[in-house]
């Protein structure tokens, strides 16, 4: 039984309250939310890492991400694929092309992140600029990167290039799980595990944690802070690049100069939701955000998806201002 509540006088669906749709769609929403949430989580890690080390919200990270989307798109293009019908590829061929696009997207995003750090933030650090100046610079860098894409490609979305059609592999409680969803979730988990191991188990990663916890003392231990900062941007960029490919596979028309904005804000939301500065928080925040916004879409209707995401953030921060896990990279112990 549906509980559709109509609020507008003319009877159109301004907002629904359809619990039945959520019940029917619950597992579909959950599975789709997990794959969308994995993408948020990968991008959120970039925000969280940079915040942990520099206490800076790198608003240009959404453009670091969208550069990766273009990187993946033009890899497809360069491999000879064109907008139009989806080609029939063998599994081996498909994996090869996707791996190639993954590498290119990661490199493009990683390089973009490092360039932003060098050109925008490092000169400010040298001069000891106050935090507000960094914030404004971050927003400025975001616009500059967007406009570079606009000048190059114009305002329209790129036409979709598809390498694969999502196909049902198995079902959970009647909800279908597609090969695309499996690829995205598994690949994201693997990448996040690698990043986590790097931060917590290697010498360089320990240097990153040391700078996050106490930059001056880290320097006294012989840690090269500038190198750690560059490394942090690089790791965040690489992860955003991977997210970029997955995003493009999910939303093939997503390559647009403004396409990073909403996703970037959502990923930032995910990072804050989980507890900014906290690697596990970024993962948790991303997944929760992906799932909850799908539930919200089922209950309230399609237009409410993004609103549900941000309302969730506000509600969580009202009760836990430091986010769900609420510790910083500095304090995080693994």
């Amino acid at each position: 039984m549906n509980h559709v509540v109509t609020f507008l006088a003319d009877g159109s669906d301004w907002i629904n309250f359809d619990v039945g749709a959520l019940r029917d769609q619950f597992w579909n929403d959950t599975i789709e939310g997990l794959s969308q949430g994995s993408i948020y989580a990968l991008v959120a890690l970039g925000y969280t890492l940079v915040y942990g080390v520099l206490r800076l919200i790198n608003f240009a990270h959404s453009e670091v991400f969208i550069f990766g989307v273009f990187g993946a798109y033009f890899t497809f293009f360069g491999l000879g694929f064109r907008p139009g019908p989806t080609p029939e590829l063998g599994a081996g061929e498909l994996i090869l092309y996707l791996a190639l696009a993954l590498i290119v997207a990661m490199l493009v995003s990683g390089a973009t992140a490092v360039v932003v750090e060098r050109v925008a933030y490092r000169p400010l650090r040298r001069r000891g600029a106050p935090p507000l100046v960094f914030l404004i610079t971050a927003i400025g860098a975001s616009f500059v990167l967007q406009q570079i894409l606009f000048i190059w490609r114009g305002g329209n979305q790129e036409r979709a290039i598809r390498l694969m059609r999502p196909q049902e592999v198995f079902t959970i409680f009647g909800a279908s799980v597609t090969n695309l969803q499996i690829i995205i979730v598994l690949a994201s988990i693997v990448l996040m595990l690698i990043a986590n191991t790097f931060i917590n188990r290697t010498r360089l990663g320990r240097g990153v944690r040391a700078v996050a916890q106490d930059p001056d003392t880290a320097t006294l231990m012989g840690v090269n802070k500038e190198r750690v900062i560059m490394l942090t941007f690089l790791i965040g960029g690489l992860l955003a690049g991977a997210a970029a490919l997955f995003y493009l596979m999910k939303a093939p028309t997503g390559a647009s100069y403004q396409g990073g904005f909403l996703l970037g804000i959502k990923a930032f939301t995910a990072a804050v939701l989980g507890g900014i500065g906290n690697l596990r928080g970024a993962l948790l925040g991303g997944l929760i955000l992906g799932i909850v916004e799908n539930y919200g879409q089922s209950v309230f209707g399609g237009g409410w998806r993004d609103i549900v995401a941000f309302v969730l953030l506000v509600v969580v921060l009202m009760f836990r201002p430091t986010g769900i896990l609420g510790e910083s990279l500095g304090k995080a112990r693994v």
Binding site: R209, Q213, D214, T217, L220, G330, A332, R333
Partner: peptide, 13 residues
């Protein structure tokens, strides 16, 4: 090498 003022122990390590 230095043991700094206020010790500077990394709190999360």
């Amino acid at each position: 090498s230095q043991a700094p003022e206020g010790r500077g122990v990394f709190p999360g390590m």
